[in-house]
Simulated scan of single mutants.
Amino acid sequence: MIDTLLVVALAGLVVVVVAMALTALAAWRTERIAIVDVTWGLLFVAIAWTALAVGDASARSWLLAVLVTVWGGRLAWHTGSRFARADQEDPRYEEMLGDGPIGGRLALAARKVFAVQGGAAWFIALPLMVAAATDRPLGLVAALGGLVWLVGLVFETLGDAQLKAFKADPANKGKVMDRGLWAWTRHPNYFGDACMWWGLWIIAAEAWPGVLTVLSPVAMTYFLAFATGARLLERDMAKRPGYPEYMERTSMFFPLPPKRS
């Protein structure tokens, strides 16, 4: 098993390097570093199927590959659509890298964005790679993980759909979205993401030594809630009229009943 795990881990690292190199080329051609957001979801899909191909093609690996493909494919479609609609760089990357010529920004992005995100993706994908080195049959724990994953998918998909419908109504222009799932958490899509990765970890944890990869979903949850996700987004959102009041009555991440005004 050790030999298989090393091969899978090395193959996953190669996938990360190749994917980030191609992303850098795409960023140079489009002159927008934000294209890395599209790569993020697809990178996990590539790692999952590579792990399946070079590891033990067990039912667990197949299940994880399919679930990650649903998650990563949907995320790539969502971020890709947003990237296509925009005509300028994402403000997050402008703040991080400046707004100079693409050559200078790419040099900084190689260290601050591509290397960091690539390393984070490889670490977060450890449950997928470790599971590919095991052959234990699926059991009740895997079923529980699938249920947690499904809850996350519902939160992410429904939250995005509710927000899209809210923005499409001209009557809501300038208003804060505080309906549906958004009344229970300010970031149902990020919470859904975290749930899905905890579900994937539970599936992997059923087969030893998958349980040892628990820091992978912890890292994903940290990024979503405190690092590059919700906390970073709210730095700008808090400046909008009505948003501070929304923050006072609505849980930031974990869904809770809204507080009375």
Score class of each variant (00 low, 15 high):
V8F: 04
A11R: 01
G12W: 03
L13D: 00
L13I: 07
V18D: 02
M20T: 05
A21L: 12
A24H: 00
E31H: 13
I35G: 09
D37R: 12
G41H: 13
L43R: 02
F44E: 04
T50L: 07
A51R: 08
G55H: 05
W62M: 13
L63W: 10
A65H: 08
G72I: 09
G73W: 09
R74W: 07
L75C: 02
W77K: 10
T79H: 14
G80V: 05
S81L: 10
S81A: 11
R82G: 01
E89M: 11
D90A: 10
D90N: 11
P91E: 07
R92W: 05
E95W: 06
E95T: 10
I102D: 08
G103H: 06
G104Q: 08
R105T: 04
A107D: 00
L108Q: 15
A110W: 13
F114H: 14
V116S: 08
G118W: 07
G119E: 03
G119C: 07
A120E: 01
F123I: 15
L126R: 08
L126Y: 04
P127F: 12
V130L: 13
A132C: 07
T134W: 08
L140S: 13
A142S: 15
A143E: 03
A143M: 13
G146W: 12
V148Y: 08
V148H: 05
V154L: 14
L158G: 01
Q162W: 05
L163I: 03
F166L: 06
F166C: 04
K167L: 13
G174L: 11
G174D: 10
G174K: 10
V176E: 07
R179A: 14
N189E: 11
G192N: 10
D193W: 09
A194P: 00
A194R: 10
C195T: 02
M196R: 06
I203Y: 12
I203Q: 12
A205R: 13
A205D: 07
E206Y: 08
A207S: 15
W208E: 09
W208M: 12
P209M: 12
V211R: 14
L212W: 14
T213G: 09
L215V: 14
P217E: 11
A219E: 02
M220Y: 08
Y222E: 01
L224E: 03
F226T: 09
F226M: 09
F226E: 11
G229P: 04
G229M: 05
L233K: 06
L233W: 01
R235M: 03
M237A: 14
R240G: 01
M247R: 15
R249F: 03
M252G: 02
P255A: 12
L256P: 01
P258T: 12
K259P: 01
